[in-house]
């Protein structure tokens, strides 16, 4: 960790986020560390409730103000800690340097504004002095870029199909050419054929614009297709992370990740029986004292229920599991991630 390179765009360290309500305290994100490299894509995977969205919202400091709270940690963007800057500075970053695409395109667009106006609005917000014609031109360009004919900018969101809407949402997110795009399950709400189209488009645009991306998904197939790095989250913790090769084909694998792979239908090898991971994720308002995955783990040892494992680093591969305990880890932290 000491010598992380210049090429890290977003660096989250030991982030801890809770949701505090009158009834309970949900420990949604626990000691999470992640890094997105410049121009690269990090896939954040994990089942529902793992804390993926919470992590993403923390980056933009958009947690619900009444309940969500960041307890500790650092979120460095270009070396600047986003948790320390004031709200006005943050507003300049949002949309302009870090943009976000939400899960559901059906509700992410304002129903009473034309699509073009919504894109123009996003551009205008961060380019106050840009003349009207220039904005109009950019709106048309960006629509073309996401595969919508520019004339349709005068239409309202309800005149668009789901896939088209998500294209518009992506157009809005990319309209200011952000350095980092956070996409929170951008294709989950779409049907399968459209998913592939939209995903390919995201991939293409990312490559064309050189945008770094944090792609949240629960689909390992998508990760394999378009990510450079992966982090696997479970019950608020990153239990394994590394490059796609590390995680998909590396020699060490966290039992949870192994479970995820086993529960994946594999079309290429002969049909093995799907093996879903037994049990449920622990209640985040009442986490077990040891490893969070221990209650469901097939390789569980005594140590697992007693104390929480530390992160073990093997090159760029990081694992949080007692199986890969201190003895086998390299003595000094590896060369970045």
């Amino acid at each position: 960790m000491e010598n992380k390179g210049e090429n890290i765009l977003l660096d989250i360290e030991n982030l801890k986020v809770i949701y505090k309500t009158d009834l309970e305290t949900v420990e949604a994100v626990n000691d999470v560390s992640l890094a997105v490299r410049r121009g690269r894509t990090l896939g954040l995977v994990g089942e529902t409730g793992a804390g993926k969205t919470t992590t993403a919202l923390s980056i933009l400091r958009l947690l619900p103000s009444t309940t969500g709270r960041i307890l500790s940690g650092k979120i460095e963007f270009n070396g600047e800690d986003l948790l320390k800057i004031d709200e006005n500075m943050m507003r300049v970053i949002r949309g302009n340097r870090i943009a976000m695409v939400f899960q559901d395109p059906m509700t992410s667009l304002n129903p009473v504004m034309t699509v073009g106006d919504q894109i123009a609005e996003a551009i205008e917000l961060h380019n106050g002095k840009m003349p009207k014609e220039e904005i109009d031109r950019r709106v048309e360009n960006i629509l073309q870029m996401v595969g919508i004919i520019p004339q349709r900018r005068f239409e309202y969101p309800h005149q668009f199909s789901g896939g088209m809407k998500q294209r518009v949402v992506i157009a809005i997110a990319l309209s200011c050419e952000p350095e980092l795009l956070i996409a929170d399950e951008p294709t989950t709400a779409l049907d399968v054929t459209i998913q592939a189209q939209v995903l390919n488009m995201i991939k293409e645009l990312r490559d064309r614009l050189g945008t770094a991306m944090l792609l949240i998904t629960h689909d390992l197939g998508i990760v394999a297709q378009i990510c450079d790095d992966v982090a696997v989250m479970y019950a608020g913790e990153v239990i394994e992370s590394g490059s796609v090769e590390d995680v998909f084909t590396g020699d060490a694998r966290h039992p949870y990740t192994a479970g995820l792979f086993n529960s994946l239908p594999d079309l290429h090898s002969q049909a093995k029986r799907l093996k879903p991971i037994p049990g449920l994720m622990p209640d985040p308002s009442n986490l077990p004292p040891g490893c969070v995955f221990a209650p469901r783990c097939e390789s569980r040892m005594d140590a697992c229920e007693a104390h929480r494992p530390k992160t073990v680093q093997r090159g760029s591969h990081r694992l949080r599991c007692h199986l890969f305990g201190a003895g086998q880890a390299p003595a000094v932290g590896g060369q970045g991630r």
Binding site: R91, R94, T107, A122
Partner: peptide
């Protein structure tokens, strides 16, 4: 509560702007 308000906030819009362009027109 709606996602497009959240999205506008994620795009860097301030409170006054969100009220004026996203909330009032929809409540109109």
């Amino acid at each position: 509560e709606l996602e497009y308000v959240e999205a506008a906030r994620a795009g860097g819009a301030g409170s006054a702007r969100i009220i004026a362009t996203h909330i009032i027109p929809n409540a109109m």
